[in-house]
């Protein structure tokens, strides 16, 4: 079953099958819904303009993931300064709010933040592998194809990323108690 990017029906199929996945991946790079939506839209525009045929649905998926991931990384690199500024502003009120509120939702939000910070502390080559593994449900083979590395390499990097995350997160736990 060949997929043609300029065929309206194929385009619809590919869009429906991959939109959520692309959003998930891009969100873990930019952490902003609007920017993620813009980047995913741009990815699909490129997909159409490229006017290429893919032998299978999976090949189209890998292409889209690769392009959207690169667009998102470029966006973060280009806007580093603005993003840091926004983060700073976001942090200010939340610290005071936590002081009064210690409900379960806030605890969960903190866990989530700790994980996010830990993942972002990883070097780029480990981070993209573990994010694709944990958040997009892809297997080692698919991840290897998207990133252009071997399956064995994916296995090694997933393990290294987990080891580092364990270290970072357990060190934080000790800080708290």
């Amino acid at each position: 079953m060949e997929i043609k990017s300029t065929n309206r029906e194929d385009f619809r199929k590919v869009y429906d099958a991959n939109y959520t996945l692309l959003m998930q991946v891009v969100m873990h790079i930019v952490y902003n819904q609007e920017i993620a939506e813009d980047l995913v839209q741009e990815t699909f525009e490129r997909f159409y303009v490229k006017n290429i045929s893919f032998p299978t649905m999976d090949d189209a998926k890998y292409w889209l993931l690769r392009v959207s991931k690169n667009l998102a990384l470029n966006h973060v690199r280009r806007n580093k300064r603005e993003i840091q500024l926004v983060d700073k502003v976001k942090k200010m009120p939340s610290e005071t709010a936590n002081y009064f509120d210690s409900s379960k939702a806030v605890m969960e939000e903190e866990d989530r933040k700790a994980v996010r910070d830990a993942v972002n502390a990883l070097p780029e080559n480990l981070r993209s592998v573990i994010q694709l593994k944990e958040y997009s449900g892809l297997d080692y083979k698919a991840i290897g194809k998207i990133l252009g590395i071997s399956e064995t390499n994916v296995k090694v990097r997933v393990h290294r990323a987990r080891k580092k995350l364990e270290e970072i997160l357990s060190a934080e736990d000790k800080d708290v108690y």
């Binding site: 619809r12 998930q24 159409y48 969960e108 996010r116 958040y135």
Partner: peptide, 23 residues
């Protein structure tokens, strides 16, 4: 623990149809 940072599908798909229409 790592999985806790996953984004909910309904959140991600909030503008799925609108963006499709645009495209």
């Amino acid at each position: 623990k790592i999985q806790k940072d996953v984004f909910l599908e309904e959140e991600l798909n909030r503008n799925k149809d609108a963006i499709y229409k645009k495209l």
